[in-house]
Write a protein that binds this DNA or RNA. Structure first.
Lengths: 219, 219
DNA sequence: TCACGAGATTTGGTATACCAAAATTTGTTG
DNA sequence: CAACAAATTTTGGTATACCAAATCTCGTGA
């Protein structure tokens, strides 16, 4: 694999820590400590923190320690609303612009998920799930759209992960992805929009359940 | 006014230089030189450059000098495609969520433009025009949406400005804005989408003309 | 004359030092 | 014992030093 820049690598590492829960929402992210932990200096660590801030995983506070983001339910559902719009736009454009290679890639991801769903680490499987959605955005051949879509996917990573492990259901995911894929292959914009609505439409509801479960745990 | 952080101030200064043309598209933005020019060290200058990169005004190249962005026609029209989708989404949500204050603010901006269009500096009037669109996004009360919409508006600043001064027409702008506003007041989602489509739909065409004019100038 | 490469220079990336503002601790006082 | 304030520590912000890679210079040789 091609080497990413040091700040990117650090950001990936921090991201995993946050998503795995080693860094809880609301916790401070101190430049010195985390830099020392990973054996790098503060400079690239600073940049890594900015990358995560751009993704919305941490929030910067002037002259104070950054903290791991602790989004409210409304903030998450707002982000989902945007993500949904971006992904439906991607699919619409992809109906006109997707190449055979784009569709092949989507088919490959879907088949891989179908085959290895129960024998793969949930975190890894979830990354594959995300790559399906990323591939849709990419198939629009609109770089700005793909980039913004990716940013929202990253921002919703944690929330989506929590719901995915709670509602882990191979047949449901594969059926939904297949429906989207077939709509794209048929170049049917309305069908694609509808399929994506069905796939992501339940997300706010699922996330609300996770939120309420957390609130109960705290009691 | 409250003091912004040093990197933000530097970013503003650089932004002005770029938009004014002191830094031409394609020109290198060297950390040392620009830092010395403004009497700061490389560290905040680095951060300022990252800010502008996030806005799309400069592009970062690994291990090379960043350069002032020189977007192609496709890149601009791609961005417009996303902006259009975001603004239509904003308007749809605003039909349900906008408060009386939101609508009053939109009305105020529209009236102000109508009244002072011919007696205001084009640059200032253009900023007011942008504030109308920003207010629509704000009226959705979806912060993520408003932020992303604002980012695209900023990214398209230069391109939109070039077309605005070329096709400066008070009646057209006011009529379009009024149509959008009335659709929002009527809480009519379809009408709002259609009005925004009419307003921004000609943008790619107008920008193409500017691009071709520039290409002719170069000859 | 031109192509190529070795050395010098420039430049972004990283580490480290220093500073001022927060945060924390601690001591004093009512 | 509580509350406030001074001193200390911690921490982000900035400046600077150093390094390696990229770029540029310029001379050499075909």
């Amino acid at each position: 694999m091609t080497e990413a820049s040091l700040p990117e690598q650090i950001a990936s590492e921090l991201r995993r820590h946050i998503l795995r829960g080693k860094l809880a929402p609301g916790a401070q992210v101190k430049e010195r400590d985390n830099a020392a932990e990973l054996g790098v200096s503060r400079t690239p660590m600073r940049e890594a923190i900015r990358i995560l801030a751009k993704e919305g995983l941490v929030v910067l506070r002037p002259a104070r320690s950054p903290i791991v983001a602790k989004p409210s339910y409304k903030e998450i559902s707002d982000a989902i609303e945007v993500l949904l719009a971006l992904e439906k736009l991607s699919a619409e454009i992809a109906c006109a612009e997707a190449t055979a290679d784009d569709l092949t890639e989507l088919r490959r991801i879907t088949d891989h998920m179908s085959e290895h769903f129960d024998t793969t680490d949930p975190l890894d499987m979830f990354e594959i799930d995300m790559s399906f959605h990323t591939a849709i955005a990419r198939a629009s051949h609109n770089d700005a759209l793909a980039e913004t879509h990716g940013a929202y996917l990253a921002r919703l990573w944690r929330a989506r992960y929590l719901t995915a492990i709670k509602r882990r259901n191979r047949d449901r995911v594969v059926a939904h992805h297949t429906a989207i894929l077939e709509a794209l292959e048929a170049r049917n914009r309305d069908a694609a929009r509808a399929a994506i609505d069905r796939h992501l439409g339940t997300l706010p509801h699922d996330i609300r359940e996770v939120f309420e479960a957390e609130r109960t745990d705290a009691a």
